[in-house]
Structures are given as C-alpha cells and as structure tokens.
C-alpha cells in the first residue's frame, strides 16, 4: 500500500527561506551597486568581487574544516556581507585591505560566534571599523579613479583625482568649508566617500524594494532618520554657524546606506517595534554626537556597533503586544 506523510499542522509553508530573503537584499542593493560600478569603473567591480569571494570562501572553509558541519553559504548571507563590506570601502582600497576586512567580518564577527543568527555585531560593519582603525590612510583615501573603465587603482595605484568628503571638509574647516553644497546633487550623486554611498536615490530605491517585499520593516530606518534630523535641528537652531543643518546630515556620509541596509540586519537589531524605534533613535543620536564633537568626521559604523550591544537588553525589555493581556 502506498504510504502517506503524517505530521502535525501546518501542512503548508509561506515558501520564504533565509536564502530568498538574502536574495531580496542582494536585489535591493543592485541600483546602488550599478551606480558605483558605473562611476568608479572596473576597480570597484574588482573590489566587490574580491570581497564577496573572500567572505563566501572563508565561511565555507570555516564550516568545513573548523566547525565541521554542513556549509551555510547556500543561504547567501555571506554574499550580502561581502557586498556590504565592499560598499563601505573607498573605491581605491588595496586588495589586501579588502581581504583583511573579509577575514574580520566573516571569521571574527560572524563565524567565531557560531555563524548566522548568533553574531551580536553586524559582520560587515565590524570589518569596516577594524579596517578604519588599522588602515586609516587607505580607508580615507577618497580619490576618484579616472575614466569609465579606468585601470583598477587597487592594482596600479596611479592617475587618480583626489577628493574629500563633505563631512571631512566640515570636520576640518567647519560650516564655511561646506558652504554652497548643492543638496539636490548630493541626493543623486554624492562624490567622495565609500563606494556604496554614491547615490542616495539608488539606496532608497533598494530600501523601498525591501519594504514592498516585506523583507524588513521601516521602523529602525525611520527612527534613525528622525533622530538625526531632530538632534541636528536642535543644534543647528542653537548655532547655525557652528553646526550643520538636518538636511545636510541626512544626505551625507554613510547614513542612508547604514540606516537602510546595515542597521536593519535581522540578527543584530531588536525584534519588537518599540525596540527598533529606540535602537534607531540611539544610532541617530550617536551619529550626530560623533559628527559634531568626535574626532572622526563620520560615525554611522560606530553608532551601529555601539547600539548592537544594547540589542539583547532591548529584546528583553520590549515584547510584542499580546492578545487579551493588556
């Protein structure tokens, strides 16, 4: 007689998997990736490929030889980490710096804690912050490789146009240094900075895709934007000759990339709506404190890492609203 499956309910599944969610994140990154590759040329493409290859290979090697358990690279989370790490680096980053970043991101921040789902800190950001501290010169070399298909500077290191980020100019020379910034231009094309920060519009397009596909909820991101706007508004109103205005702070640096794609990482962000709002507000506040008073011009990575530490507490303190228990 033919045998049939007997198992408890539910008998159907939403057909969503870790892999499909990560694939959606990759799709959401495509506009920003396209813009950066089109602008920075082949060198950026090589950095992206190197970063992704290192992350995936490393995760595969660690699961196979160190943890001795089935490989998890099929869930595509290592690809996402690789892409985000590369997007958080200057387009001129030398190849060995990329490799070190990947080792820290996957080897230290992710796999040493047990792999996907276990890491307390965002892997890509941990990698970036390690590089920022270890290779300060290479990590703030905001030069623009020349031409569409320029010789990759990570191989040749020649013929580049130097530039400083708007936040860098502000940190150096105060408000006068950034006078006359065209906000409309920064919205579409913000030259100088990490490769992935180039176009706010491209990043927001990807963020919109993630919302439509219900991959993430908007609360963390909106809370970061709201908190940055509010904190900078207060300071700007107090002294506009010393502090930058809210719009400047929303459109510059790695804020949009960080708020849309890094702070919203499932594993390292709170699970409840209230927790996400507080987490986002904390990130925004720390970003503004670093930008206004810190020694680094930009602080999105540090802010996310610091707030990552608070996540377990937020998960403990805030829970979903229960039915019939209020």
């Amino acid at each position: 007689m033919k045998k049939y499956i007997v198992s408890p309910n539910p008998h159907i599944h939403a057909a969503v998997s870790t892999r499909s969610l990560m694939l959606d994140v990759i799709i959401a990154l495509i506009p920003a990736l396209l813009v950066s590759v089109l602008f920075y040329g082949l060198s950026e493409l090589l950095i992206l490929a190197l970063s992704v290859a290192c992350c995936v290979l490393l995760e595969w090697a660690i699961t196979k030889w160190m943890l001795k358990r089935p490989s998890t690279i099929g869930d595509l989370s290592a690809v996402v980490t690789g892409l985000l790490l590369a997007m958080n680096l200057p387009a001129t980053t030398p190849w060995y710096v990329v490799v070190v970043g990947a080792v820290v991101a996957i080897g230290v921040a992710k796999m040493s804690f047990g792999g996907i789902g276990q890491n307390p800190f965002n892997p890509a950001i941990t990698g970036r912050v390690f590089l920022l501290i270890s290779f300060p010169a290479q990590m703030t070399d905001w030069t623009v490789p020349q031409g569409f298909l320029s010789i990759p500077s990570c191989l040749s290191g020649v013929d580049t146009v130097s530039g400083a980020t708007l936040l860098g100019k502000y940190a150096e020379g105060g408000v006068e240094a950034i006078a006359g910034t065209d906000y409309l231009q920064t919205l579409f094309f913000n030259i100088g900075g990490s490769a992935g920060e180039l176009s706010a519009i491209a990043l927001l397009l990807g963020f919109g895709y993630l919302l439509v596909r219900r991959v993430i909820k908007p609360w963390t991101t909106l809370s970061i934007f709201g908190s940055v706007a509010l904190v900078s508004l207060i300071f700007w109103l107090i002294d506009p000759t010393r502090f930058t205005d809210p719009l400047f702070n929303l459109l510059t640096g790695g804020l949009i990339l960080g708020a849309c794609f890094m702070a919203t990482d499932y594993v390292t962000s709170p699970m409840s709506t209230a927790g996400q709002v507080i987490y986002g507000a904390g990130i925004g506040l720390i970003v503004m404190m670093i930008r206004y008073f810190g020694s680094y011009p930009e602080g999105v990575s540090f802010a996310i890492l610091i707030m990552n530490m608070v996540v377990p507490l937020l998960n403990n303190a805030f829970h979903q609203k229960k039915y019939g228990r209020n």
Binding site: I5, I12, T72, G115, G117, M271, Q320
Partner: peptide, 24 residues
C-alpha cells in the same frame, strides 16, 4: 506540503509578526 530543512534562527521576527495571539 514538504517541510524545508531546518536552519539557524536569523531573528527576523516573522513568527512574532505572524502570531495572532501576540506571542513570540
């Protein structure tokens, strides 16, 4: 009706979003 292979929890919160009793 097949169930996919179990992997690690990624703390996405979909289960608590889906729970009609507001449980986690």
């Amino acid at each position: 009706t097949k169930r996919g292979e179990t992997s690690a929890c990624i703390r996405c919160g979909r289960c608590s979003d889906a729970c009609p009793m507001g449980l986690e």
